[in-house]
Simulated assay, not measured.
Amino acid sequence: MKRSEFQVAIDEEFGPGYGGALVRDLTMEALGGRTAREALDAGIPPREVWLALCAATDVPVERRHGVGQREPGRHG
C-alpha cells in the first residue's frame, strides 16, 4: 500500500473529515503511542498503519484490505 492509497482508504472508510481527525488525533499503542500521521512520518509502512487504525476503530476484517487493494489470498 502506498501512502496515497492509504489516504484513499481512509477517506472511503471514514469520510475525509472524520478520517482526517483519526489520522491526526488517535494515538495507538500498536504504533508505539503515535498517531497515524506520526507513524507515517516516522517511516512506518502505510499498510501497517492502516491495519493498526482498522484494529483500533473496529473496522470489520473483510474491509481491512483497503480500497483499491487486492484482498489477501486473492489473485487477479
Rank of each mutant, 00 (worst) to 15 (best):
K2D: 14
K2I: 06
K2L: 11
R3N: 07
R3S: 08
S4Q: 10
S4T: 09
F6T: 02
F6I: 01
F6A: 04
F6P: 01
Q7F: 12
Q7M: 12
V8S: 07
A9R: 01
A9I: 06
I10A: 05
D11W: 07
D11R: 04
D11Q: 04
E12M: 14
E12T: 15
E13H: 13
E13K: 14
E13G: 11
F14L: 10
G15S: 02
G15T: 07
P16K: 11
G17C: 09
G20S: 00
A21E: 13
A21L: 10
A21H: 12
A21T: 05
A21C: 11
A21Y: 07
V23R: 01
R24F: 13
L26F: 06
T27N: 04
T27W: 09
M28H: 10
M28A: 04
M28W: 08
E29L: 14
A30H: 02
A30F: 03
A30K: 08
A30R: 02
L31F: 04
L31E: 09
G32L: 08
G32D: 12
R34I: 06
T35Q: 03
T35C: 01
R37L: 14
R37F: 13
E38N: 02
E38W: 10
E38V: 02
A39L: 06
A42W: 00
G43Y: 00
P45A: 13
P45E: 05
P46M: 11
R47V: 00
E48P: 14
V49H: 05
V49Q: 01
V49T: 05
W50E: 02
L51C: 13
L51T: 11
A52P: 03
A52D: 00
A52S: 06
L53V: 03
L53K: 07
L53S: 01
C54V: 07
C54D: 05
C54A: 02
A55N: 12
A55E: 14
A55Y: 08
A56H: 03
A56D: 03
T57F: 00
D58L: 11
V59C: 09
V59E: 06
P60C: 01
V61P: 12
E62V: 15
R63I: 03
R64S: 02
R64T: 08
H65D: 14
H65P: 09
G66E: 05
G66W: 05
V67K: 13
V67E: 13
V67G: 11
V67W: 12
V67Q: 09
G68P: 14
G68H: 08
G68D: 10
Q69N: 15
Q69D: 11
Q69M: 11
R70Q: 07
R70C: 09
R70T: 12
R70E: 07
E71F: 15
G73P: 10
G73W: 12
R74P: 15
R74Y: 15
H75V: 14
G76H: 08
